[in-house]
Design a protein around this nucleic acid. Structure first.
Length: 350
DNA sequence: ACTATATGTCCAC
DNA sequence: TGGACCTATAGTC
């Protein structure tokens, strides 16, 4: 259930866990029989583009010779896919606290709590499509929409059908701005279209539109370049935070309720200051996502939901009012919180 | 045991 | 636009 930030996180985790090392690969489930072709190769690195993950493999003697032919394992997690890591203490847990395991995708899983103390003896679930095992630990993939070997041309074809990715340094925001302004489709639908911008999912869509105070049903061609440039900058900030912490948080501290802040303070076990992602509980993290019928954090109006582009969109009908305006329109709300200040619960925001 | 749900995408009609 | 697909989990009977 990842959006782009999760996939970028995964790429970093794979580089750290297996980068440059020989690995064993297998498909316990049997549905990725090509795993046998990769067994014993070197995992050269990992790449994230939007919600697509590429793991790069090459035979070790090719690597030694200096010009390896790279096999790109293309993985898309879809709605259900996830990776589970297990290994030596410190393996793939750059973002976890203490435990020699973490599951990227959703919750953590107790891998050694049930009597399994050695990750090497961890029997894969029968649904594991791909297992990658290195000297320090392993990673199990379940439920992906895609898991296939690609060559360089096929990889490029995937990139070619994606819009700019806010988490990539090579992204060109003008492509996003121009594509939106050329379209009569609603901004709510355009944000979910991976050709327009790569990596946004249903949460970032709803939250970005709220932060822009924008009605999801405004046609793209009615938005000003300036508005879209600000939205791009906001996306970069939101998704960078998400990639760093593994969690989506879009609320400004002053918009989370007071009781929540008291609870967060009183938890008291923050060793490392302000960067602990657990500081913001899930219920405090969003302005509108999954908050239909609840009062808007800013104005108290009931948050609404409806279908838009095959998914449920959530929005505040009072705060998100811009519609049917020509390009050049400026926001009516006094101060849209473009700058995200995560982790500083209770502090005044910019 | 069954059902509903989930941060996704594609294809057929 | 509706259904199919991939899987785990929480909730209900």
């Amino acid at each position: 259930m990842p959006e782009g930030h999760t996939v970028h996180r995964l790429a970093a985790a794979f580089e750290q866990a297996f980068g440059g090392q020989r690995v064993r690969t297998s498909s316990p489930q049997g549905r990725f029989s090509e795993a046998a072709q990769l067994d014993g190769m070197v995992l050269l690195g990992a790449e994230a583009v939007g919600k697509h993950l590429f793991l790069l493999f090459a035979p070790s003697d090719d690597v030694d010779r200096g010009s390896p032919v790279v096999r790109h394992v293309h993985i898309h997690l879809g709605l259900y896919g996830s990776w589970t890591f297990a290994g030596e203490p410190g393996f793939a847990d750059a973002h976890a606290i203490g435990a020699p395991r973490l599951r990227i995708g959703e919750q953590e899983e107790q891998l050694d709590g049930g009597g399994v103390s050695d990750w090497r003896r961890l029997v894969p679930r029968p649904t594991v499509r791909l297992r990658i095992a290195g000297p320090q630990g392993l990673a199990d993939l379940t439920g992906p929409t895609a898991c296939e070997i690609m060559d360089a041309q096929e990889r490029q074809a995937v990139l070619d059908r994606l819009g700019p990715d806010p988490l990539r340094a090579d992204a060109n925001p003008a492509r996003f701005v121009d594509a939106v302004r050329r379209s009569r489709t609603t901004i709510g639908a355009l944000l979910m279209n991976q050709k327009i911008v790569a990596g946004i999912g249903n949460i970032y869509r709803a939250e970005l539109l709220f932060r822009a105070r924008l009605d999801p049903f405004v046609p793209g061609n009615e938005l000003s370049a300036g508005t879209l440039e600000e939205m791009w900058e906001d996306l970069v900030a939101l998704m960078t935070y998400g990639a760093r912490t593994g969690r989506i948080v879009t609320t400004q501290p002053e918009h989370r309720d007071i009781e929540a802040r008291i609870v967060e303070r009183s938890r008291g076990t923050r060793q490392n200051g302000d960067e602990d992602p657990d500081v913001v509980s899930r219920e405090r993290s969003f302005y509108v996502y999954h908050r239909q019928t609840l009062p808007c954090r800013l104005c108290g109006t009931a948050v609404r939901s409806t279908d838009l582009a095959a998914r449920t969109v959530f929005w505040c009908p009072r705060c998100q009012t811009a519609r049917r305006r020509r390009a050049g329109w400026t926001r009516e709300h006094p101060a849209a919180p473009w700058a995200l200040t995560p982790g500083s619960s209770g502090e005044a925001a910019a």
